[in-house]
Nucleic acid binder design. Structure first.
Lengths: 196, 196
DNA sequence: AACGATACGGAACACGGTTCCGTTTGGCAA
DNA sequence: TTGCCAAACGGAACCGTGTTCCGTATCGTT
């Protein structure tokens, strides 16, 4: 294998040192710009913040989706891992579901514009879409199944639809004080309850 | 009088005949393009479809929001007027609310991209936002109040928030067969029910 | 028929995404 | 240490789209 490329595992890629440094710099810059200008910030702004050229940004993150994923990966992972934990520590599966969804909502509403881009049908965000879904839908499904098995909720709604619905409800939740996404999401979760 | 006015007797501005004709042509063209390419279609496409120049489109409809409003005004009016009618003809206020919301959802999901643009925080769509809200929130409020007065639902959710929530749930409902906005909205309305 | 107001068309500009290529640099081997 | 070259870099250039502006054409009236 001549140690030239380790795509599979974690660990140090055999990239050049300056490349690795630039990637880190870009991540920091992007995170910072996303906070102040939202995830739609012009590529040039991010490049400027990082002090690199445009080519560099596109080389490391071919699409905006790649950059967004890289910036928020840790938080998404944390959210995913919180699912089973909440299931174990909560009084009921339905309560766990509610708390987990709250975690997700908190994440989305504090990332200016992320919810919107997450559900844009614009091709090019497909990978972003796919990443969130792959990572979180199974967790949501687990919570949903547990609650259904406990007889707390109706079982005719899939995890995918629920995630999309919750994500959609978060769109524009920042930038509008009259709109409280958390409340709407609570209502949605409440609507899941068995009515019999 | 003086047969210059038309269109439901509303304003008959002393515009030139060709200007009025072009406005009509543009509305038809826009409606047609919106159906095939969505409300984000390039301005040039609409101008081309209408066979007019770019200046003409901007003169008649300074912002995209103006054009969208003009194209869908009739349907929004119809939806608004259906509110009181449903309240009168339905078994319960809550049923009327459900049916009315369904009307709104049907409208939104069949207009490619409209729901998204309706809730974009992008300034420039402010007037679109305002138009929908001004016209529909009062109707929704009336239904909500009736249902609350009948003791069918909790009364701690405003019409504004409900409309935003429903609108948000409709985003991307076309272009994704796995996502059924109507079902989610039903759930939301179900969540409004008094639990005691 | 002539004339002024009104409206028109589209060139030109602004802006952001994306590509491409000449130049620089890190890491390795001699 | 030096020399080499693939890797990585920077940013000019290009493209598509929104928006403005102004010379020209047309309408409707005198």
């Amino acid at each position: 294998m001549s140690g030239s490329d380790e795509e599979a595992g974690r660990a140090a890629p055999s990239k050049r040192a300056d490349a690795r440094r630039n990637k880190e710099t870009l991540l920091d810059a992007a995170a910072s710009v996303f906070v102040t200008s939202g995830v739609h910030a012009p590529v040039r702004d991010i490049a400027a913040e990082a002090g690199v050229g445009l080519g560099t940004i596109y080389r490391h993150f071919p699409t905006r989706a790649d950059l967004i994923i890289a910036v928020y990966r840790h938080q998404v992972e944390a959210c995913a891992e919180a699912g089973p934990a909440l299931l174990a520590s909560s009084a009921t599966p339905h309560a766990a579901l509610g708390q987990w969804v709250n975690l997700f909502v908190d994440f989305l509403v504090t990332k200016h514009g992320l919810a919107a881009v997450l559900h844009s049908d614009d091709a090019g965000f497909d990978t972003l879409h796919a990443y969130f879904l792959d990572r979180l839908v199974p967790v949501c499904a687990q919570l949903l199944e547990a609650a259904a098995a406990a007889g707390e909720i109706r079982s005719d709604l899939g995890a995918y639809e629920l995630m999309r619905g919750v994500g959609n409800l978060c769109i524009g939740a920042d930038s509008d004080p009259r709109y409280d996404a958390r409340r709407l999401v609570e209502l949605l979760i409440a609507g899941l309850r068995r009515t019999d």
